[in-house]
Every structure is written in C-alpha cells, then in structure tokens.
C-alpha cells in the first residue's frame, strides 16, 4: 500500500473515531475531568507546589490522561461492538489501523492541552517560554501517551479490563515522575530510590515540558528527554502491534 493511501486511511479511521468516541463518558471523564480533578486535589493538599510546577503538572496530566484514555477506550469499545472486525477485514494494514487510533487520541489531547495552557499562562506569566520547543514537547508527550494507551488496550475486550491496570500504572507514574515537584524533593528522604524516576518515561515528558516553559537549563537532559520519548514510542507501538496481531490467533 502506498504512503498516500496509508495516510488517507489513517485520517479516515481517526475521523470516524472522533465522530464516534469523543463524546463517550469514559473519554470525557478520564480525558478531561480527571486530570483537572487531580490537579485541584493536588493543589489543595500540597500548598508547597510552586507555580511553575503547577503549570507543568497540569500540562503533563492533560497530555498523559487525554492521550492514554482515548487510545485505550476506542479499541475495547470497537471490539465489544464487533466493529473492530470491519477494520481488520478491510484492506488496511494493522500498522495503519493502530496509527489511525493514535491520531484520534492525538487530535483529542493535543488541542485540549494547548487550550488549557493558553488559559493558564496569562495568569502565571510566561517565564522563558520557548513556543516551538513547547509544541514539540507536548506533541511527543501526547504521542507517547497514545502509544501507552494502545499498548494496554491492543488485546482488551472491555474498557474496564484496560482501565484498572492502566490507572494503577498511571498513578504510580504520576507520583514517582516529578509531575508536581522536582524529583530531588520527592526522593528527599529516600535518595537511593531516585533511580525509579529515571525508569519512568513520564519523567522525560515532565522535564521536556518544564524546560520548554521555564527555560532550558540542561540541554543534554533535553536531548535525552526527546531520545527516550521517541524510543519509548517505538517500543510501545511495537508492543501494541504484537498484542493486536495475537488476537487473531
């Protein structure tokens, strides 16, 4: 199949998903309501959170919850209604199919995150914001989140089967990746456990967003952020693809 045809089909699948699944309760709850609720709860319980981390926190939560949720909700819903068979039976490669599903997650999470930021930033100040870097960081974070959601949902038959294990991992990642405060502060009393943060891909997403909003303070770390996020995206798509293929056996 030519690249043109594949691209067209990615858009066709994504457009259908946007029409069909954006208004579903799990998409709205996990994709929009929950990140804001978490942000609010965190602010109320942790007055020590600095303003720059509040902005970074809500940005990363928005990309992470939006991207993972849409990607994770669509496949099980399609499988439950049997419509996934329609896609499998069509002359569409499985890679194209999965990319179409990711694009639906991306077009949900990316604009929502930019909208949230455009509302918050005028009230908080712009620090040394680098718009291009911010867009790239958010885009990579959203793509990583979509791949993460797909890897979880690729073989699931029910939204609940995906949500409980994924939420468990998502919350662990949020609290150990320095979403709302610097990693050094999180592990202040247990510095030997700091390596956990560096094992979690969300840490790199947080750092990339932080440096693009507050100002570049460690260029090597920024390069590492992008490299690791891209590597994780490739790995997660491969896992999603393998798990999806396995459903045919």
């Amino acid at each position: 199949m030519s690249i043109d045809t594949s691209l067209k089909k990615i858009f066709v699948i994504a457009a259908k998903d946007i029409k069909t699944y954006y208004s579903k309760p799990p998409s709205l709850f996990y994709g929009i309501v929950l990140p804001f609720a978490l942000f609010g709860a965190f602010l109320a319980g942790r007055p020590c959170v600095t303003e720059d981390y509040r902005v970074v926190g809500v940005t990363v939560l928005s990309t992470f919850f939006g991207g993972t949720t849409i990607a994770a909700v669509i496949l099980p819903l399609e499988r439950r209604s049997g419509t996934i068979d329609r896609l499998i039976l069509a002359p569409v490669s499985f890679k194209t199919l999965l990319l179409g599903k990711s694009l639906a997650g991306f077009t949900f999470s990316f604009p929502v995150t930019l909208l949230v930021l455009s509302i918050i930033l005028p009230f908080t100040g712009f620090w040394n914001l680098n718009p291009l870097l911010l867009v790239v960081s958010i885009a990579l974070s959203v793509i990583f989140s979509c791949a993460f959601g797909l890897a979880f949902s690729a073989s699931a038959n029910d939204v609940a089967d995906v949500m409980w294990p994924m939420n468990f991992v998502r919350f662990l990642m949020i609290f150990f990746s320095g979403v709302f405060m610097p990693i050094d502060e999180i592990y202040l009393y247990m510095p030997s456990l700091k390596f956990i943060a560096y094992l979690l891909p969300l840490t790199y997403s947080v750092d990339a967003v932080y440096q693009s909003i507050v100002g570049i303070n460690d260029i090597m770390m920024l390069i590492a952020d992008f490299t690791i996020l891209i590597a994780m995206i490739i790995l997660l798509y491969y896992i999603a693809y393998r798990r999806f293929i396995k459903t045919l056996t």
Binding site: K16, T20, R86, L87, P91
Partner: peptide
C-alpha cells in the same frame, strides 16, 4: 457490526473510504 453513532449514509461512506 455497524457504527450505531453514525447514520446509515456515514456508515456506508466510511466503508467506501476504507476500500
């Protein structure tokens, strides 16, 4: 296995685009 959120026309257009 139709998309119940879409109209009959939209379902058929989607199928045509897939093929």
């Amino acid at each position: 296995n139709i998309y119940v959120e879409m109209t009959a026309w939209e379902n058929l257009i989607f199928a045509a685009e897939l093929y």
